[in-house]
Design a protein around this nucleic acid. Structure first.
Length: 884
RNA sequence: AGGCACGUAGCUCAGUGGGAGAGCGCUACACUGACACUGUAGAGGUCGGCAGUUCAAUCCUGCCCGUGCCUACCA
């Protein structure tokens, strides 16, 4: 405990830059973030959604990490063995691209370097730049257990990946097959369906004729004329009268020596185009399916770089665009072109490179997803895992119910190389966890490993358990798995959440997490998605530099409404910065008035009404905050704390406490100090999970004996049954009277420094007046009242007058009361009372209301009406005074 | 095409089957010793439109209008 001098230890305002990094370092060095798997307390585990190792912290991470850290810090304080496991993702394509671009600048390429040298290069790069994101996570204040930090490509996780692959392979849940895949011609790799993004593009629908073998022709419509080089059929609807006579005949290819059969297939819609579709099985998913149904030839006309191959005849070597142009020109020349019309259609682009996706036939590895999906589906249906908010269940179901096999091989170098070896001698394949020396079928030494690597999401899918030591039996796995909650955005429900569910259920027979909290997307203040091209990207590190991590965290928490996007504006953060300053200055006040007091932080049993009131309110707030933490209603938590701290604790309680703190009554002063310290200490603890830095700083500075060295290790406040009776109604009435006096003053522009005398009386309720009289000091201090008479004045002329809940207030201020102003105010008040009477009596006159509405409500309405009538009557009397 | 949201104060958004809330902005007054990153008081809304259920609807139901997002193979 530091001894205190007369000077404050606290600066005028909170300056986050001064304390954040050293405080974080202290926490980390002291080992507060770590947890032992021997810890006997119940576990609470979160695994971080591993950010891309090449990445930088963006707003999405900032939100994600804020929410996770709030939960982790809350649970840690609340007595759980808390593990927040951090790490990063090797992010195959993204990382490879970054390093390739670097090489390009130096005039090098990975092809020149060769595979091994290139991968070494990427590792070098990772070592040098991969810590950036990790450092940025620290700046958020995230209390991760860094001793357990993992990387999806480190040794342990690579082992897990191989184990998973081989297990699935042995169960025939992974297979290799030639299939029409999404080909990214820029990265020259296959990608999964999920990595294809569709954009609406204005294109041309080209109508052209195929000559028929027996004379005449048939007109087809297509958005991609160049694929006609791979056409192996023309399909029509089986019941299309126009084409009945030519089904089974052949069309002739204008450039290639090929006869193209006319086939009938129910897939074709008569209404679209001409009702006749050219079929290119090797370059269109639907055509591919049809090709399988009709055993059509599948002629691939594209090279892997997207140019025309040897099957394209005279067009070989051209890229798609050029080929399209030349073909249209050629058709025109041959008088086969019918027309072209504008046409809007969806075109797939690579999520990573932006290149137009080419469906391409190639041999790839796939995961057979259906059996895995069924279990993943059932786990959510039976609530073993629940989504928050619940609406995401449906999204999850829909995808899993219609799931297609997952293409997991990528023609890249950076990633987990597929653990399958092909034998040069017997041609068979060997899948193995450890690199085999020989073919398991013929023992030949001439084996080659498959050059492809796995989709990054394959390793991410194992993340919740591979990071805890799986497939080995580990104490971490035993203690911390399954995890309690996953916090992430909806954009990766399919990519990641669903796959973790499938993998975890398959390999551990358990769900990976009990809850999945899906948070919103962060947009700019105008609701626009943040993107580099729009130039509206907000850098969280920049915001931390300027406002502090606490302000950013609290803002994100306050804006995090379930199921809705977040619009982040700098104004909001400024507001929270001000709030932090408020909390800070309250801390300075506490320090100032408590001097050398060192009290135990026990809940006091105060005798003064105001102290009873704040303790009572505090415990209501503790209950609400705990409740909303469990429900993960983050905005509610922030709102409740904001309102309570600023508008109840600071605006009311601190002001109400001053008469005692600055007064001479030793016992009252003592009690108030104790209550103040207790309340403030509790407020800091309640707020700590959201704003760790400022609360720790203020807490360290409190003149209190404490059981722990850091607020983050102290116990989270609990609600307690308070033994003192508190008449909240009377205190509310007192506050309402204070507000009313201020209102009257303000209406007459009486300077705050001018002392006034007032009359205060209540004809119906002497008890209320007794209470007000015994609490007069507060009215005097908070409304700058000099003298109070507890009876009606002899004359109500030249007074500011109002009535509240039967208590009448008259401010006598000869000469200062503006008669006109007063009249208007009273008229307004009177009208309000009259509206009340009308509203309430209308209800009560309705016999159905009296008969059917809850009795309590009817009684309340009656009471309110009585009150309104009284108020109205008093105001009318006063108005008569004015007119006379 | 199917699915999911959302239309509440000038702006950004909470909220509930029983008389509309916050933050910012705006107006007036005030540098009383925690705080001008402040205090006090105030102005401002047919809760998108139309019907229905109900004693009672901003909230529940249906339709309509408007705005976003996700999924999907229409050549």
């Amino acid at each position: 405990m530091k001894t205190k001098d007369q000077q404050s230890n606290l600066a005028k305002n909170f300056i986050p830059q001064d304390i954040e990094s050293t405080l974080y370092q202290q926490w980390e060095d002291a080992g507060y973030f770590g947890v032992s798997n021997d810890d006997p307390r119940p576990a609470y585990t979160i695994v971080i959604p591993p950010p891309n190792v090449t990445g930088a912290l963006h707003m999405g991470h900032a939100l994600d990490h804020t929410l996770q850290d709030i939960l982790i810090r809350f649970k840690r304080m609340d007595g759980f063995a808390t593990l927040w496991l951090p790490g990063t993702d090797h992010a195959g394509i993204a990382t490879q691209n970054v390093v390739e671009r670097e090489l390009e600048k130096k005039g090098q390429s990975r092809q020149e370097m060769g595979r091994k040298a290139f991968i070494d290069q990427v590792w070098e790069w990772k070592k040098q730049y991969g810590s950036r994101i990790v450092e940025q996570i620290r700046r958020m204040g995230s209390s991760c257990d860094w001793s357990r930090e993992r990387f999806t490509f480190d040794e342990g996780l690579s082992h897990a990946v191989r184990h998973a692959f081989v297990s699935l392979y042995n169960e025939d849940l992974i297979y290799r097959s030639t299939y029409l895949v999404n080909w990214d011609p820029k990265n020259q790799t296959a990608i999964s369906d999920l990595e294809v993004e569709y954009q609406e593009v204005k294109g041309m629908l080209t109508y052209f004729q195929y000559p028929l073998e027996q004379g005449g022709h048939i007109t087809v419509a297509t958005t991609r004329p160049e694929t006609m080089l791979g056409d192996t059929a023309i399909a029509v609807a089986p019941d299309d009268d126009r084409y009945q006579n030519i089904i089974g005949q052949y069309a002739l290819h204008p450039w290639l020596d090929r006869k193209i059969p006319i086939i009938a297939d129910p897939y074709v819609k008569k209404e679209f185009g001409t009702g006749a579709v050219k079929i290119t099985p090797a370059h269109d998913p639907n055509d591919y399916e049809m090709g399988l149904r009709h055993q059509l030839d599948m002629i691939s006309i594209l090279n892997k770089d997207g140019t025309m191959n040897e099957h394209a005849g005279p067009f070989q070597g051209l890229d798609c665009k050029e080929a399209r142009k030349k073909i249209i020109a050629g058709l025109q020349e041959k008088q086969l072109l019918v027309k072209q019309e504008e046409h809007l259609h969806q075109v797939g682009h690579s999520q990573r490179s932006g290149a137009v996706i080419e469906p391409l036939l190639s041999k790839q590895w796939f995961v057979r997803t259906e059996p895995l999906a069924q279990e993943a589906l059932a786990a959510v249906q039976t609530s073993k895992t629940t989504f928050i908010p619940e609406k995401w269940n449906k999204t999850y179901y829909q995808w899993l119910e219609n799931i297609r096999d997952w293409c997991i091989s990528r023609q890249l170098w950076w990633g987990h190389q597929i653990p399958v070896w092909y034998c040069d001698d017997c041609q068979k394949e060997t899948a193995a966890i450890e690199d085999p020396a020989t073919c398991q079928h013929c023992q030949s030494h001439h084996i080659q490993q498959d050059p492809d690597v796995l989709d990054t999401w394959f390793s991410s899918g194992l993340w919740p358990f591979s990071t805890l030591g799986w497939p080995d039996a580990s104490k971490d796995m035993e203690k911390f798995f399954p995890t309690q909650v996953l916090v992430t955005g909806f954009d990766i429900i399919f990519f990641w959440v669903a796959r973790m569910m499938m993998m975890s259920l398959k390999f551990t027979q358990q769900v990976p997490f009990e809850k999945v909290h899906i948070h919103a997307l962060i947009r700019d203040e105008h609701g626009q998605k943040m993107s580099k091209s729009k130039g509206n990207v907000v850098d969280p590190i920049d915001l931390i530099d300027r406002y502090g991590a606490d302000a950013l965290r609290f803002s994100l928490c306050a804006l995090s409404v379930q199921g809705r996007d977040i619009l982040l504006s700098e104004k909001k953060i400024e507001g929270i910065r001000n709030f932090i300053n408020k909390l800070w200055n309250a801390g300075k006040f506490v320090e100032h008035v408590c001097q050398d007091q060192q009290q135990a932080a026990q809940p006091p049993q105060p005798t003064l009404s105001i102290n009873q009131w704040i303790v009572h309110r505090l415990h209501e707030v503790i209950g609400q905050v705990r409740h909303n933490l469990e429900l993960m209603k983050f905005n509610e938590i922030a709102d409740q704390l904001y309102h309570f701290i600023w508008h109840e604790f600071c605006d009311w309680y601190l002001e109400l406490s001053k008469p005692h703190l600055y007064g001479q009554h030793v016992q009252e002063k003592q009690e108030t100090i104790q209550t103040l310290l207790y309340a403030y200490n509790t407020i800091l603890q309640l707020t700590h999970p959201i704003m760790p830095f400022v609360t720790e700083t203020l807490w360290q500075n409190l003149p209190l004996y404490r059981e722990t060295k850091s607020i983050m290790l102290s116990s989270y406040p609990q609600t307690q049954k308070l033994t003192t009776e508190v008449d909240m109604k009377k205190i509310s009435h007192l506050m309402a009277c204070i507000t009313l006096i201020r209102t009257i003053r303000s209406a007459h522009t009486i300077k705050p420094s001018t002392k006034i005398s007032i009359h205060l009386w209540n004809q119906k309720n002497q008890e209320v007046i007794d209470f007000l009289q015994s609490h007069a000091i507060y009215m005097q201090e908070l409304a700058n009242v000099d003298h109070i008479s507890y009876s009606a004045p002899a004359s109500k002329e030249n007074t500011g007058y109002d009535v509240i809940e039967g208590t009448e207030i008259a401010i006598s201020l000869e000469g200062l009361v503006d008669a006109q102003e007063e009249l208007q105010r009273l008229q307004k008040e009177e009208k309000k009372a009259l509206d009340d009477i009308q509203f309430l009596s209308k209800k009560l006159k309705n016999p159905k209301f009296v008969a059917k509405a809850p009795e309590k409500l009817v009684q309340e309405t009656k009471d309110k009406l009585k009150q309104a009538e009284l108020t109205h009557q008093k105001l009318q009397e006063q108005l008569q005074q004015h007119s006379s």
